[in-house]
Amino acid sequence: MADLAGPTGLMVQVQPGSDLDPEEHAELTDRLRTELLDNLDLTSADPVDAPSAPAGAKGLGTLVGWLVVQFGTVETLRAVVNAVRSWVGRTNHVVELAYAGDVLKVTGVTSEQQEKIIDDWLARHATGA
């Protein structure tokens, strides 16, 4: 399991859908994790354990769907965001990304809208990784 001590930790939360039970939610999150690890140069992408839970998370059940992704460069951060965006488009699920206290919600909005939102979010962290 991951800890959030590193400065390059990106919190990833696959939002639970009303149609998902906890097991399906965990499987969906694991598919995203596998895709990220298989396709990107990441240090790690691990489930979040209880001591590393973000502020506001309550109980173990809310940790289903959470990953912490460790990366080395802003380019890799951009690649992670783009991979999540593509995954959201294919699966029709919502994913929240949090980095340095800044949250980006990746949804099924149009490509142009999502690209603008992502570019603005990444620009705020261009020197942070």
Score class of each variant (00 low, 15 high):
residue 54 P to I: 09
residue 78 R to A: 13
residue 12 V to I: 14
residue 129 A to V: 09
residue 14 V to Y: 02
residue 109 V to T: 10
residue 90 R to L: 10
residue 20 L to S: 08
residue 36 L to E: 04
residue 98 A to H: 01
residue 80 V to G: 00
residue 45 A to L: 03
residue 69 V to G: 01
residue 45 A to K: 00
residue 122 L to V: 10
residue 16 P to W: 06
residue 43 T to F: 00
residue 51 P to T: 05
residue 78 R to I: 01
residue 33 R to I: 01
residue 23 E to I: 14
residue 81 V to R: 04
residue 129 A to Q: 03
residue 12 V to S: 04
residue 35 E to Y: 11
residue 75 E to F: 05
residue 121 W to H: 07
residue 22 P to Y: 06
residue 49 D to Y: 01
residue 32 L to C: 10
residue 55 A to Q: 10
residue 102 D to M: 09
residue 24 E to A: 12
residue 11 M to E: 09
residue 68 V to Q: 01
residue 96 E to F: 02
residue 52 S to K: 04
residue 126 A to D: 10
residue 31 R to D: 12
residue 99 Y to C: 02
residue 121 W to T: 08
residue 16 P to S: 11
residue 8 T to R: 02
residue 104 L to P: 02
residue 85 R to K: 12
residue 94 V to L: 13
residue 128 G to Y: 13
residue 95 V to K: 06
residue 35 E to D: 13
residue 74 V to W: 04
residue 110 T to F: 07
residue 14 V to N: 01
residue 76 T to S: 12
residue 15 Q to H: 15
residue 53 A to T: 07
residue 88 V to M: 04
residue 41 D to K: 14
residue 128 G to K: 10
residue 95 V to W: 02
residue 91 T to V: 09
residue 101 G to V: 08
residue 92 N to C: 10
residue 83 A to D: 06
residue 11 M to N: 03
residue 67 L to K: 05
residue 38 D to H: 14
residue 113 Q to L: 14
residue 72 G to R: 15
residue 126 A to I: 13
residue 93 H to F: 03
residue 91 T to F: 07
residue 36 L to V: 14
residue 61 G to L: 11
residue 37 L to A: 09
residue 38 D to P: 03
residue 99 Y to Q: 00
residue 114 Q to R: 08
residue 31 R to C: 08
residue 84 V to N: 02
residue 120 D to H: 14
residue 36 L to Y: 05
residue 42 L to S: 05
residue 95 V to S: 09
residue 104 L to E: 02
residue 69 V to T: 07
residue 11 M to C: 03
residue 118 I to E: 06
residue 35 E to S: 11
residue 18 S to F: 14
residue 52 S to A: 15
residue 78 R to C: 03
residue 63 L to A: 04
residue 30 D to F: 08
residue 91 T to K: 15
residue 39 N to A: 13
residue 124 R to K: 14
residue 105 K to N: 06
residue 43 T to E: 04
residue 48 V to S: 02
residue 111 S to H: 08
residue 67 L to R: 11
residue 99 Y to V: 02
residue 121 W to M: 03
residue 86 S to P: 06
residue 33 R to S: 04
residue 105 K to S: 09
residue 27 E to H: 13
residue 99 Y to K: 00
residue 68 V to L: 02
residue 117 I to L: 08
residue 75 E to R: 15
residue 26 A to M: 11
residue 105 K to W: 06
residue 11 M to D: 06
residue 63 L to N: 01
residue 57 A to F: 07
residue 44 S to Q: 07
residue 95 V to P: 07
residue 112 E to T: 05
residue 30 D to S: 14
residue 63 L to Q: 01
residue 50 A to Q: 07
residue 28 L to Y: 13
residue 29 T to R: 07
residue 39 N to L: 12
residue 23 E to C: 05
residue 75 E to D: 15
residue 67 L to D: 03
residue 119 D to Y: 04
residue 65 G to L: 03
residue 123 A to S: 11
residue 63 L to R: 03
residue 125 H to V: 03
residue 82 N to I: 00
residue 68 V to K: 00
residue 16 P to C: 10
residue 69 V to M: 01
residue 93 H to K: 11
residue 31 R to W: 10
residue 72 G to E: 15
residue 119 D to K: 04
residue 82 N to V: 00
residue 44 S to Y: 11
residue 26 A to H: 13
residue 24 E to R: 13
residue 61 G to E: 13
residue 127 T to V: 12
residue 10 L to G: 00
residue 75 E to Q: 15
residue 69 V to A: 02
residue 40 L to E: 07
residue 9 G to M: 01
